[in-house]
């Protein structure tokens, strides 16, 4: 099939970008979306034009490196990562608009590549359990109720792709943060640092320039791992508790 691609091109963070249009023929419905872009890039290289820069690594939906706004939707029309989106979700003659994640806290590096270093810094601000290597007690010394372990796992599946931020009209990272607060907060091992964790992460979130949450829910709709919106409720509850404790 044949598609028309409108792609954001921006040489670097300092230079202003613009949309460019490319016609691409011979696209097979079995191709993944990123393989379609690989084909475009091979064409561009053959013509002596700079290929489109975009991030991807595992291409099996787990590393969180890829992420594009496709026709205005984070990761495109299916509930999955960009790398797991296939061209069978489009039809012959479609026009496809491709942009980078749009958020103040995710500056563009080049074309479709953005800087998500803010997520690492939020984890550094408290998204961990302090236990030095070798000091851990025997694994069976602390039983964890199965339902708690399942809930912790379900939200720990967050891949840190940033789709939640890109989808949010406010550019908030509350879903990302709530997933980590809930993952560690559900487990007995996470209790000692529960207050300091939420205060640290929220402070860093705000310092990075992410917006506030107004419960719109676009984040959870865009999340390829279907992290539920109630992790933000838990985040808010934990923050209130921590503040009440004098943090």
């Amino acid at each position: 099939m044949k598609v028309t691609l409108k792609i954001w091109r921006q040489p670097d963070a300092q230079t202003k970008g613009a949309m460019h249009t490319y016609d691409l023929d011979g696209v097979s419905s079995d191709m993944s979306f990123l393989e379609m872009l690989d084909v475009l890039n091979e064409d561009l290289i053959a013509k002596g034009e700079d290929p489109v820069a975009f991030d991807s690594d595992c291409r099996e939906g787990i590393c969180g490196m890829c992420g594009l706004m496709i026709n205005g939707q984070a990761h495109g029309p299916e509930v999955t990562t960009t790398c797991q989106l296939h061209m069978r979700s489009f039809k012959d003659g479609d026009e496809i608009v491709i942009e980078p994640w749009r958020a103040d806290a995710f500056p563009v590096i080049k074309d479709l590549v953005v800087d998500r270093g803010a997520f690492d810094r939020m984890i550094q601000a408290g998204g961990f359990i302090s236990v030095n290597t070798g000091s851990a007690p025997e694994a069976h010394s602390v039983p964890v109720p199965r339902d708690d372990a399942i809930r912790a796992f379900n939200v720990a599946t967050c891949i840190g792709c940033g789709a939640c931020v890109a989808a949010c009209p406010n550019g908030s990272a509350s879903l990302f943060m709530g997933a980590k607060i809930t993952h560690l907060g559900e487990l007995p091992q996470g209790q000692p640092e529960r207050d300091s964790r939420v205060v640290g992460m929220v402070s860093q979130h705000d310092a990075e320039g992410f917006g506030g949450c107004t419960n719109i829910g676009e984040c959870t709709a865009a999340c390829p791992k279907e992290i539920p919106l109630d992790v933000i409720s838990q985040l808010n509850r934990d923050l209130q508790t921590a503040l009440r404790h004098g943090h």
Binding site: F128, A136, P137, E138, A139, P143, R146, A149, F153, L187
Partner: peptide, 22 residues
């Protein structure tokens, strides 16, 4: 065996049985 102890202490959500053990 040390690895499992370490990971559990870090909050790795391994699958568990109904009694709460791994």
């Amino acid at each position: 065996t040390n690895i499992i102890d370490q990971c559990v202490a870090q909050g790795v959500p391994f699958a568990r049985e109904y009694g709460g053990l791994l």
